[in-house]
């Protein structure tokens, strides 16, 4: 996905602005990593778990008649995991230590989610509006995203 470097820049900005942020990730609602700044754990696993939690969260808000999904905050003994909607097809997941300022985390994440949404939706819309010209021979062929786990990408960007 062509939006990944811009999304990664957004995540780096978040990490610089929010104290006690230990990880950040943008994933599709079906659990595929788009960009991440996560160390010490498998981002694919976190994205898959996020997708599962998201499904329950969305059904819960729907069941009680509170509309669509917006945010999910899980507080653990040693930190927080927060997931925010970023457009219709993606979510922003943040990991923060227990010392984090949740109010600040919410404010920054909502703003970042709103900025990330057009980047991703734009990247998804583009191929549909204008067919992508055949790639030059030097570049690798485009592989459609799949649910199978891929080898860890050192650059932090998966496409």
């Amino acid at each position: 996905m062509t939006a990944a470097p811009e999304v990664l820049t957004e995540l780096q900005g978040l990490r610089a602005r929010v104290p006690h942020l230990t990880g950040a990730m943008v994933a599709s609602t079906d659990g595929l990593v788009i960009a991440h700044l996560v160390t010490g754990m498998e981002p694919d696993g976190v994205a898959a778990l996020t997708a599962a939690a998201l499904g329950v969260g969305a059904r819960l808000t729907d069941a009680v008649g509170h509309g669509g999904f917006r945010e999910l905050l899980v507080s653990g003994e040693r930190g927080y995991v927060a997931t925010y909607a970023a457009g219709s097809s993606c979510v922003l997941t943040l990991l923060a230590s227990a010392d984090a300022n949740v109010g600040r985390l919410n404010l920054e994440a909502r703003r970042a989610g709103a900025r990330i949404a057009p980047l991703i939706d734009g990247a998804l819309e583009r191929p549909r509006q204008a067919p992508v010209p055949p790639p030059p021979r030097t570049s690798p062929p485009r592989i459609p995203p799949s649910r199978t786990p891929r080898p860890d990408n050192q650059s932090g960007v998966t496409s």
Partner: peptide, 26 residues
């Protein structure tokens, strides 16, 4: 502890009290 406001009153377009709550927590 969390940086979130338990209650707010007043404020305006230019004074978002939830932003103030998070910032003043710091």
């Amino acid at each position: 502890g969390s940086g979130m406001a338990l209650g707010t009153l007043g404020g305006s377009q230019s004074l978002d009290l939830n932003v103030a709550a998070a910032g003043n927590t710091d």
